[in-house]
Amino acid sequence: MAGVVGNQELRRPAVLALRTLAVATCYYAAGRLGLLCRLTVEGAVFTPVYPSTGVALACLLVFGLGCWPGITLGALFLVLSLGAPGPDAVGILLGNTAGPVCAYLMLRRVGFRPDLSRLRDGLALVFLGALAAMVISSGIDVVTLILAGKLDTTHFWPIWLAWWVGDAMGVLIVTPVLLVLFETRGPPSLARWKEVLALAAVAAVLVPVATHSSLSALFLVYPLLIWAALRFRLAGSMLCALFASVTATVAATDGVGAFARLSPVGVMLKLQLFNGSLALTALLLSAVITEQHNTRRSVAEACKELAEVLEHLTAHDSPAGRAPPEAAEPRSERGTR
């Protein structure tokens, strides 16, 4: 017995270390992917969609608050990969850790469910996890860079807005996808693979055309998003939203299609409005559809249980379920007849 307890005590630090390293690796990899597409606003370089914030919040929601050292470690790896760190690195690490942690605490406070099966969960993720909490991370990061002399104070608000929206888009687009992948128990049934392949084929053709066409046809993405939400709910809609957001971000950084001949600020505003409306539509529409599906299923189960109860009561009250009248009479009376 003592040996088992000792093995468990030794296993816990090992599991914690491996989990911390895994979270740090995922955070660093997501950050490097996000840095592949960058925009410049008032001389400051930022990522329109910073996926590391989405990865950090998803890890907190899945593994709990104890994985925050992995977020800090991943942010440190990312800072070191960009060059020799200075005193401002401490503020960057603080901001990148504080934002997701505050988002996690606020979501836990309102009873958030990671399966996003209710409309209130989608609204909480949007307004608390993305819009409110990322004010903290972006504010700390931008103030740190200003104090370090790397940013001009006269352009604080445009830079902060671009930083804040990039962090918020990471939560809105990346976090739901990771939560869906974690909650998924298996692939779709064989009967639905044809529709899955059809949806993927249409998305592979329609999304690049909509984002890279000079006709500014970004609106063509929304019917595809509605189809995915109606048929595959959160998994389909968020994967389509992620693909459309990445494709639009590439077009924006290249300055082609719907983002051609725009100023840097105009590119940033148009891209983030598209990404924001895309994520909100996918998240809230799929949450409403899932909630209605769960409500119908609950009503159907309640009706089935009620029918079983009525059938049971009817069986007891039927003539076949009752004893014959003479069987219920006293023996003495039957003998006198």
Rank of each mutant, 00 (worst) to 15 (best):
L225K: 00
G122N: 04
Y50F: 15
I140E: 01
E308T: 10
L16D: 08
L242C: 11
K304F: 12
V142C: 06
R296Y: 10
E42A: 15
V256H: 06
L215M: 10
L80K: 06
G129M: 07
V5P: 03
L123D: 02
W163M: 09
V23H: 04
R108S: 12
L161S: 09
A56W: 01
V5F: 11
E333T: 11
A84M: 02
K270C: 00
P114C: 11
L35W: 05
Q8P: 05
L93M: 13
M268G: 03
W193R: 11
P100K: 05
P69M: 02
L225G: 06
R334D: 09
P324N: 10
H316E: 14
L33H: 00
A24G: 14
S298A: 15
P330V: 12
G66L: 14
S332K: 14
G91P: 04
V143F: 14
V246E: 08
L239V: 02
A203I: 08
F274M: 08
F182T: 03
N275V: 10
L190R: 07
S318P: 07
V5Y: 09
A244Y: 03
L190W: 03
G43M: 10
I140A: 04
L105T: 04
A252V: 07
P114A: 14
F127A: 10
C240V: 13
S245I: 03
V5D: 13
G6S: 14
G111C: 14
G34T: 05
G99M: 06
A248K: 04
A228V: 01
P208G: 10
T53M: 08
S263G: 13
G186Q: 08
F232A: 03
N275A: 02
L21C: 11
H316Q: 15
L10P: 05
G139H: 05
F127C: 15
L178C: 08
L78T: 01
V5K: 12
A89H: 07
L199C: 11
F127E: 07
L61T: 09
V221A: 10
K150Q: 14
R337G: 11
G95M: 05
S214F: 01
T336E: 12
R231F: 01
T253K: 01
D152T: 12
R185N: 09
F127R: 08
G43L: 09
L273M: 13
G236H: 03
L76W: 11
L218F: 00
L107E: 02
V174A: 03
V62H: 05
F46D: 00
V299E: 14
H293D: 12
L283T: 04
C59A: 15
V207N: 05
F259A: 01
L310C: 11
A89D: 07
H155L: 06
W163A: 07
A2I: 15
T20E: 01
A191W: 09
V267G: 00
L172G: 03
T336L: 14
A30V: 02
Y222H: 02
G91Y: 09
A44H: 13
T290H: 01
V15E: 15
L220T: 00
V135W: 07
P187N: 07
M134R: 02
P100L: 04
L35T: 00
C67V: 15
T20N: 03
T144Q: 09
G43C: 11
G335E: 13
L65T: 06
A302P: 05
V126M: 11
W227G: 00
V110N: 03
